[in-house]
Nucleic acid binder design. Structure first.
Lengths: 191, 191
DNA sequence: CGTCTATTTGAATGTACTCAAAAGCGGTGG
DNA sequence: CCACCGCTTTTGAGTACATTCAAATAGACG
């Protein structure tokens, strides 16, 4: 029942009648992604917004020296895309890869635009998503400005205990903005 | 004409008839803030969302050691508040201070809620604000993860040339996440 | 003019990085 | 099922970027 989770997620914010529900679901399609497969590649158009039905994904970007920075991890029931490029029809600046064999429900940018035009009640749902995303990123900025590497690591563990099992140390380091070597040292010092 | 700017700002996203316009404006009130005056103090309820009609504001928070971190600067026609606490009716974790003698147009959280309920078309306006805020913060996270202090400084100058004139070096340093002393060195090396 | 804060400068320090080598682990194919 | 390959993790030495602390100078404001 991939769509049950999706509906539940959206109905937290909007009450839907049968017609709206049917129309909404008609816009999503299911897509399986194998572990290590890329859902989005830097430079490609970013046409889809993804709901994680099952599995785990990661978005990251590369700087000019080839260093990876993880933007976010997405577990079950999370949404993920390269939001800036999705919203502005720009070529992607990020990669999105599957950390495990996963299943996503994807909606095309045009479909989302149509949805919001045809049924403006969905505006609220999307607004709340953006609100939450904004305040989450703002907290992350503050943490990056004020915390030491070790404190950032501790906070990540406390905030996202489920994510830690799905990712490598290198991926976590690239989310925290430190080197994998140094994260290794931090972990050793905890023992 | 403080309200003309406000209207123009909102009408970029929503077309309003006379009734909607009148209702909207009835929810805002004008407030003058002197330089160095606080619009919001940590721990206080954060009931208002502010539109900068004139002047310049800054939001920042203090960590446990008393170190300031600037969250954002807001010039004319920008919006500012402690968004997380505003949306969730929590006590503020930030301060908002006037950098110059300023005038803001403020709307109460309850008024905004009523506005969105009564005229759902405003959802789109607020959604777009949140979208832009989100993608901006995400870029800032990426910059913090990938750039050196000097690169962050250069990027800030390029992106916000108008802000630089309104703020002290200490305030800029606390936005970039470096010490004022080190920013002084960076600047000296440019000459 | 005097006071308070911001900025500059420099020396000593620290946190985290780079580079390199070894060990561990997971997946793949024979 | 084991052996091998590639990637991740560990470990350590040397280094760099940025901080801390302190003192001197400059600027802003009443």
């Amino acid at each position: 029942m991939p769509f049950a989770n999706l509906l539940k997620n959206i109905q937290k914010h909007v009450n839907l009648n049968a017609e709206e529900e049917a129309y909404l679901l008609s816009l999503f399609s299911e897509k399986a992604v194998d572990k290590k497969e890329m859902l989005l590649h830097e430079g490609q158009p970013c046409h889809y917004f993804y709901f994680v039905y099952k599995g785990a994904l990661r978005s990251y970007c590369l700087d000019k020296q080839g260093k990876e920075s993880t933007i976010m991890f997405a577990l079950q029931n999370w949404w993920i895309t390269d939001m800036f490029c999705f919203l502005n029809d720009k070529p992607a600046i990020m990669f999105i890869e599957a950390l495990q064999d996963s299943v996503v429900l994807q909606i095309h940018k045009k479909s989302l635009d149509n949805l919001l035009l045809k049924y403006p009640k969905f505006e609220k749902w999307f607004r709340v998503l953006m609100q939450n995303a904004y305040t989450r990123e703002q907290l992350r900025v503050i943490d990056n400005l004020t915390l030491s590497a070790e404190e950032k690591y501790d906070k990540f563990l406390a905030k996202y205990p489920l994510i830690v099992n799905e990712i490598t140390q290198k991926q976590l380091a690239s989310y925290l903005g430190i080197t994998p070597e140094f994260l290794s040292v931090i972990r050793k010092n905890k023992l």
